[in-house]
Simulated assay, not measured.
Amino acid sequence: MSESLEIKPHQAVLVEQVLEHLSPVSGGRYLDGTLGFGGHISAVLEKTNGVAEVVGLDQDQQALDWTAKELRNTWPQSQIVLRHERFSRFSEVLDELGWDKLDGALLDLGFSSFQVDTPERGFSFLADGPLDMRMDPQGTALTAREVVNAFPVRELARIIGEFGEEPLAGKIARRIDEYRQYAHIASTRELAGIVEQAYPPARRAQARNHPATRTFQALRMFVNDEVGELTRFLDAIVPYLAENGRVVIISFHSIEDRIVKHFFLNHAKKCLCPPRQPYCLCGHTATLKVLTKKPVMASDEENLRNPRSRSAKLRAAQRI
């Protein structure tokens, strides 16, 4: 285990806001689908004095091992179940445990500081490392290196444009294709340099962030099927929420935030028929009450203390 993990691997965002909207109670059952280093679930256990049953899931075995040790040392009497699993497959874990209802479910869709700051994971171009980007480095998913070197130009452009919302997606994909004709793209710095050269000099000078930021986001989202994971989780979670049970989701960019927003709004409606239709034919009934009309953001104080909280958006809903 890396020595850096023994220092301070990750600082959870919006912890107080999570507690406010999750509203954990003693004796409740809670799911943290993105356990990470346990910042949020630790707060839930502290709020309930350890008298809660919790299930934590994560794809990163190294983070899971560290958090398991910390939680069991701090809360030895609590019922804590941890699994190396994707959060979209939470129902399989709950069914195995015989849990049919949850009092609360939480997702923090951001990747951890430890993952970003570990060059070997390939998430960031700030330090050179292999082009990997898998949340589960022992998993079977394609690596970013395989995507960048093998996918057709049109598919690369689609990925960068759709998941990175990058206006120069086509130009970047063509630049990547030109480069890989004579050299295999293997490292994060190498790819970042290629993307940077695809930007016109004037646009490069005006960019607030590094030109490769959106491309790296897009590749990470594609490699880990992040949109598919979120969609599958949302499609399955409502029946598992007990009456008045709550679901809280923290996202870090507009694609995921839109998905969560529209899911909550649709499930809060009594009818999904077109507005001009004179009477309801859909048979839909409301299953959720939206608790956050607008996304909850970090305070200025938290942003100063933890800069990675700046893009975090929290939305919450309650089962009715």
Rank of each mutant, 00 (worst) to 15 (best):
C271R: 07
V290N: 06
A205C: 04
V223S: 06
L219F: 09
A286I: 01
N209R: 14
P211Y: 13
I237R: 03
F222M: 09
E226L: 02
F233Q: 02
N266C: 00
E243K: 12
L288W: 03
V223D: 10
P278R: 07
A218Q: 11
S309T: 08
T285M: 01
P295Q: 08
E302H: 08
D257H: 01
R305F: 01
R258K: 13
M221W: 01
E243F: 03
V223Q: 08
C280Y: 06
E301D: 08
R232Q: 13
F252E: 06
T215D: 06
R305W: 00
A286S: 14
E229T: 09
L291Y: 07
N303L: 09
D225E: 15
M221Q: 12
N244G: 03
S254D: 09
L281T: 15
D225M: 04
P278G: 06
V227W: 02
P239R: 10
R208N: 13
F252A: 05
L281Y: 07
T213D: 07
N244P: 00
E256Q: 10
N266K: 12
F264T: 05
K261S: 08
V247T: 04
I255V: 14
D225K: 11
R232C: 06
R276H: 13
A236S: 15
V248Q: 03
K269Y: 01
P278W: 06
N244L: 04
I249A: 00
S251M: 03
N266H: 11
P211K: 11
C273D: 12
M297V: 15
S251R: 01
F263V: 00
E301F: 06
I249P: 03
E302W: 08
D257K: 05
H210M: 09
A286E: 12
F263N: 00
R208I: 13
E301V: 12
P295M: 05
E302C: 10
K289T: 12
R276S: 14
V248S: 09
Y279R: 15
R232H: 10
